[in-house]
Amino acid sequence: MQYQVQLDEFKGPLPLLLELIEKRKLDVTSVSLAKVTDDFLAYLKEREEVSLQNLAEFLFVASQLILIKSKVLLPFFELTAEEEEDIKELEERLREYKKFKKAARQLGRRWQQQRIAFCREQTIPIQVKPSFPPLEKTELAKALTSLLKRDETPAVLAEETIEKTISLEEKLASLKKSISQRVEISFRELVKNSQDKAEVVVSFLAILEMLKQRFITVRQEGAFGEISIKRLSKL
């Protein structure tokens, strides 16, 4: 007798076994297991592409089936307590699987009914609320004038020269030197003699690095305030 079992995806030994039993309209008992043993083995023989891992599972079930069939055919054939347990387990697992197979079908129908309960779409509020401290107009004016003063020299158009860049290490060394001479220094003082913006940026990075290394502590009173740098340890 030929059994064509439609496979949409990999089927383990339990689903196959159940399918074979249900095809014969049998209940899950050891007698019906014995009856489908040949079908199961035939299926296994036909499908040579069963992978090694799956093959092990199939062979395990197959060996149990052969045991069950032997018992049914040979009444005097005694099974050990462990074998009895194993067979009972296989039956129990099959019955269990059968229940869930049915439940899965019901669940699938329910899923397709599209009885969806909608909830309020949660749009995660991104709060962009920069907290600016109250500023006096005069302070803004002051900041602007100092900015303008800094940029007094008219911008010279690019003169194809490669400028020597200050490395972070160099700056770190020089900053350590100037800080070691004093206990406290402001950032403004520190970058007073900077050549260009790049050097200010590098100085700032150097400050962050020293902060990370716990050489210094840094304080700033309010936004745009002076940054004062304090030495922590002996450098």
């Binding site: 899965a104 669940l107 699938g108 899923w111 309960a117």
Partner: peptide, 30 residues
Amino acid sequence: TKANLGLLVNKFLGQSLNEKLSAATLETLA
């Protein structure tokens, strides 16, 4: 919202409906 209004509400919202699940997925879900 109430489940029995699902299809109606969905008609208005135009959201995607439940896609079909495979037998293996449904078994696991069950």
